[in-house]
């Protein structure tokens, strides 16, 4: 196994990508009662960094389409005029994010002790494909 060292602050989210992703050429296309195709499903599986057995894949695709039947009810909802999307039901009344100031964790050894593999005080992983 090729070992590549990553600092404890490394996040794999950067590799997987997060937020909005492009799946198809259907951008802007009006939505009707849709089903998730097998082709699109397998694309999602790859993007989600998953692997499925054939039986598991068949079950999950069926369930996704059943859930989509419920979700499609939203397309029938008469939206109130001027309604704005809300990310929280209640307005966040907290103090807001803390100042972005680095603070050392008191016991980094506890963090590293939980890692599957470490080397020289860093998380160890196989190399990234194609990386030099």
């Amino acid at each position: 196994m090729i070992i590549r060292k990553l600092s404890p602050t490394y996040s794999i989210i950067a590799l997987l990508g997060c937020g909005i992703i492009r799946l198809s050429k259907s951008k802007g296309k009006p939505m009707s009662i849709s089903k998730i195709s097998s082709e699109l499903f397998h694309k999602l599986v790859g993007l989600a960094a998953l692997e499925l057995t054939a039986a598991e894949g068949a079950y999950l695709l069926t369930e996704m389409n059943h859930q989509l039947s419920s979700v499609n009810a939203l397309l029938q909802v008469p939206l109130e005029e001027g309604i704005q999307p809300t990310l929280h039901g209640i307005q966040c009344l907290g103090a807001g994010p803390r100042a972005d100031v680095w603070q050392p964790f008191p016991t980094p050894g506890e963090i590293l002790a939980g890692a599957p593999e470490i080397e020289d005080g860093m998380f160890a992983v196989p190399d990234v494909k194609g990386a030099k």
């Binding site: 937020g19 992703i21 799946l23 998730i36 599986v45």
Partner: peptide
């Protein structure tokens, strides 16, 4: 995970 990725993807 799969449903969340589908529902938040561009075009949907």
């Amino acid at each position: 995970i799969l449903m969340g990725m589908y529902l938040s993807s561009e075009g949907y």
